[in-house]
Amino acid sequence: MKKPAFLITIDTEGDNLWRNRSGHVTTKNAAYLARFQQICEKYRFKPTWLTNYEMAIDPVYIDFARDVIARGQGEVGMHLHAWNSPPAFALTDNDWQHQPYLIEYPREEMRKKVDFMTQLLQETFNVKMLSHRAGRWAFDEYYAELLIEHGYRVDCSVTPGVNWRFSPGAPQGNGGSDYTRFPREAYYLDAADIARPGASPLLEVPMTIRYKHSGLMNTLKQGYDRLRGKRRTPSVYWLRPTGGNAQQMITLAEKTLADGADYVEFMLHSSEFMPDGSPTFTTEADIDRLYADLEQLFSWLQSRTQGMTLAEYAAAKSAT
């Protein structure tokens, strides 16, 4: 690649799922996505819309995504929230409340859900599904095996340095995936151990994340937390907007590229482009500040990177 890639990944899902534990999901945010698509195209970047069930059946989103695909200005990939994705299977006494991880389900139920979502997306958008991100970032070897069987080429579920064990899913489960010892750069994963490089055809593209503090400081903080009876992962910076953090994102991207990375990966949820679609951006003024931050970040990245979808990046990696 002549320049490092800028990978824009959007978890494309229902409205304010942080707050919604009722079982009734709305998809009003589908009407707010065109503005973000326009700013991406302004800077010649191509988002990957990682799409879950409720969005895949929303007529507004379907029309939007088909247009993006037809014009070659982005990609649709798969995103799967296990508690809300057919076929139905009750894992807990209230799956909407607990929002269990897909990797907590019986293997046969995992397979059925991956089969269904892959087929639904391919039939709806008339394209092969190549890119994927797990719901709630939960990934394991069997999940990887299912993706490989379906011909996926790239996954972006790994959040290096983050331990999701402290985030509960099913009450009888062990929490999410622990990524504290995973690579930070893209790698073809070992299907028998997704934490290490191997010979599988599935490219893992970890999120762009860096620790806020030094290794020594993290050790001291975690030791102090244990004494207080608390468990949490060390603090990190993500390449994602949180409101007024444009310079922080630029600094993170700059350090990542300076370390020799051949990509930086940005993420956000589709509902965050809509007022009151998330806990972070609740008003129209918040959304305007979000776009002001995006203008600064995208402007800085435009001359330093090249826009690619996840599948385009995977194809470029395989050609080298």
Rank of each mutant, 00 (worst) to 15 (best):
M1I: 05
K3A: 03
F6R: 09
F6V: 04
F6G: 03
T12L: 05
T12N: 09
G14M: 01
D15K: 00
W18T: 03
R19S: 01
N20R: 05
N20T: 03
R21D: 03
T27D: 02
K28V: 04
K28D: 09
N29Q: 06
Y32C: 06
A34K: 06
A34Q: 00
F36V: 03
K42H: 08
K42M: 03
F45L: 06
F45E: 02
L50N: 11
T51E: 05
T51C: 06
E54Q: 07
M55Q: 02
M55N: 01
Y61R: 00
I62W: 09
I62L: 08
A65F: 02
A65H: 01
A70V: 11
A70F: 12
A70T: 12
Q73T: 06
V76E: 03
M78Y: 05
M78G: 06
H81I: 07
S85P: 15
S85V: 14
S85I: 12
F89M: 12
T92Q: 15
T92F: 15
Q97H: 06
P106F: 02
E109F: 05
R111E: 09
K112H: 09
D115P: 07
L120P: 08
Q122A: 06
Q122K: 02
V127R: 14
G135P: 15
R136D: 00
E141D: 03
E141M: 04
L147G: 04
H150A: 13
G151S: 11
R153I: 15
D155K: 07
D155S: 10
G161M: 12
V162E: 13
V162K: 13
W164R: 09
P168I: 11
G169R: 13
G173M: 15
S177I: 10
D178S: 10
Y179A: 13
P183E: 12
A186D: 00
D193A: 14
A195Y: 01
R196V: 08
R196I: 09
A199I: 08
P201E: 02
L202S: 07
L203Q: 04
E204K: 05
P206N: 11
T208L: 02
R210L: 11
R210E: 11
R210T: 11
Y211A: 11
S214I: 14
S214D: 09
S214V: 08
S214L: 14
G215V: 14
M217G: 04
N218C: 14
R228E: 07
G229P: 07
R231K: 15
T233Y: 05
S235T: 14
L239I: 08
R240C: 13
R240L: 13
P241M: 08
I250C: 00
A253I: 11
K255H: 11
K255G: 04
L257R: 14
L257Q: 07
Y263N: 01
Y263C: 00
M267T: 10
S270M: 05
S271C: 15
S278M: 00
P279S: 02
T283R: 14
T283E: 08
L290V: 01
L290F: 01
Y291W: 00
Q296C: 13
L297Y: 08
S299V: 06
S299P: 14
S299F: 13
W300K: 12
L301P: 14
Q302L: 07
Q302I: 07
Q302G: 05
Q302F: 09
Q306K: 14
Q306M: 15
L310A: 08
A314N: 01
A315H: 10
A315C: 05
A315L: 10
